[in-house]
C-alpha cells in the first residue's frame, strides 16, 4: 500500500501545473510540437513556481479554457481540477520568478500576453 501523506498527488500536481501548461498549450496544427516543449518546460518550472501558483491554479485553468475557446483551438488534456487545497505557501523569490518568466518569454515559451498574465499573477 503506497504512502499517501506528505507528498504530491495527481490532482494537486495537475492544479499546480495547469497555470503555465494551461495558458501556454492551446494548440493547433503546427503549433503542436512547440506546445509540447512549452508543456515540458512548464512542468520543469513547476517545482520552482509551485508556491506562487498554487492558489491561482483553478482560476488560471478557467482562463486557459476561455483563451482556448476564443482562439477556437483545442485545449490540451486539462481535466477539471478542483481547487487546490493550498497549504501555507512558503516564501517565494519573486525576483527569480520574474526572471524565469522573462527567460521563458525571450526564448519563445511564453507569448507577450501569457508573460503579462503570469507576471500580473506573480505580483498580485
Amino acid at each position: 500500500m503506497p504512502r499517501r501523506r506528505g507528498r504530491p498527488g495527481i490532482a494537486g500536481t495537475m492544479a499546480r501545473t495547469a497555470v503555465i501548461a494551461g495558458t501556454a498549450t492551446a494548440v493547433s496544427g503546427g503549433m503542436q510540437r512547440h506546445a509540447q516543449s512549452k508543456q515540458q518546460a512548464a512542468y520543469e518550472q513547476d517545482s520552482a513556481n509551485q508556491a506562487a501558483y498554487e492558489s491561482q491554479a483553478q482560476m488560471a485553468e478557467m482562463q486557459a479554457q476561455m483563451n482556448a475557446l476564443q482562439a477556437q483551438q483545442a485545449a490540451p488534456v486539462v481535466p477539471a481540477a478542483p481547487a487546490a487545497a493550498a497549504p501555507a505557501a512558503p516564501a517565494v523569490d519573486t525576483i527569480a520568478e520574474l526572471k524565469q518568466l522573462a527567460d521563458m518569454k525571450s526564448s519563445g515559451l511564453l507569448t507577450d500576453d501569457e508573460f503579462a498574465a503570469a507576471k500580473a499573477k506573480l505580483l498580485a
Binding site: R4, G6, P8, G9, I10, A11, G12, A81, A85
Partner: peptide
Amino acid sequence: SNGLLSDEDVEE
C-alpha cells in the same frame, strides 16, 4: 495501488 493519489488530493 500505484500511489498516484495522495492526501492533498483527498482534501481537494
